[in-house]
Simulated assay, not measured.
Amino acid sequence: MTKLLLLFAILYAACGLALSIVVNAVSFTSVQLGDNALFPVLTWGIFPAFLSVILIDISEREGRKIRSGAGEEIDHWELIFGGCPSLMKYVFWVCFAYAWAIGIVLAILQTHEPNVIWRGASAFWMAFYALGLASVSGAYLRRRAPQTL
């Protein structure tokens, strides 16, 4: 059941990431995105993707405490990215850097282009969905791998 839930979460985060990338690319064109249901859907959609990251972190942290003792320092990035393909880590870090950079640029330039809100928001959506995808993929691959004692 857990593997099926993780597969659903992978699909969810991958669709959110792909849609965010498309929206971001379209925001640089002359196509007016305007007000539609896509904005709140993608905005509220990051919460389940990020909730999966939190739940995986809590689950892995508790499992690690049981296996190694309670006094050990825990690296949360290692827990989140543990087992995920390297490419997914790089995708997250690129999306994160892009969201940070576009936020700074838009704050400094204060442009009034029609799609500027979509451009900025979609950059942050990309970072959250990429983090969810990397975390859930890593959790899925860890559960699929043979267990060793």
Rank of each mutant, 00 (worst) to 15 (best):
T2W: 13
T2H: 11
K3D: 07
K3L: 13
L4Y: 12
L5R: 06
F8E: 05
A9H: 02
A9L: 08
Y12H: 00
Y12I: 01
A13F: 01
A14F: 09
C15E: 01
G16W: 04
A18P: 00
S20L: 02
V22P: 00
V22R: 03
N24T: 06
N24P: 01
S27Q: 08
S27P: 03
T29D: 09
V31L: 15
Q32S: 14
G34H: 06
D35S: 14
A37Q: 10
L38S: 10
P40H: 11
V41R: 00
T43N: 10
I46G: 01
F47L: 13
F47M: 09
S52M: 14
I54G: 04
D57M: 15
D57W: 12
D57P: 01
I58M: 08
S59N: 11
E60L: 11
R61Q: 14
R61C: 12
R61V: 11
E62H: 06
G63H: 05
R64H: 08
R64G: 04
R67I: 15
S68T: 15
G69E: 10
G69M: 06
E72Y: 05
E73D: 15
D75M: 08
D75V: 05
H76Q: 14
H76L: 15
E78I: 13
I80L: 12
C84G: 04
C84Y: 02
L87T: 08
K89H: 03
F92W: 12
F92R: 00
W93M: 14
W93N: 08
C95H: 02
C95M: 13
A97G: 13
A97H: 08
A97M: 13
Y98F: 15
Y98T: 11
A99V: 07
W100T: 14
I102D: 02
I104C: 07
I104M: 11
I104G: 06
V105E: 08
L106H: 07
L109I: 08
L109W: 11
L109D: 09
Q110F: 13
T111Q: 05
P114C: 10
N115G: 09
N115C: 05
V116D: 09
I117M: 12
I117P: 00
W118K: 00
W118G: 00
G120S: 07
A121P: 03
S122E: 07
S122Y: 07
F124S: 12
W125P: 02
M126A: 13
A127Q: 10
F128N: 04
F128V: 05
Y129L: 04
A130I: 04
L131Y: 02
G132R: 02
A134C: 06
A134Y: 03
A134H: 01
S137V: 07
A139E: 14
A139K: 09
Y140Q: 00
R142D: 05
R143P: 00
P146D: 10
L149S: 14
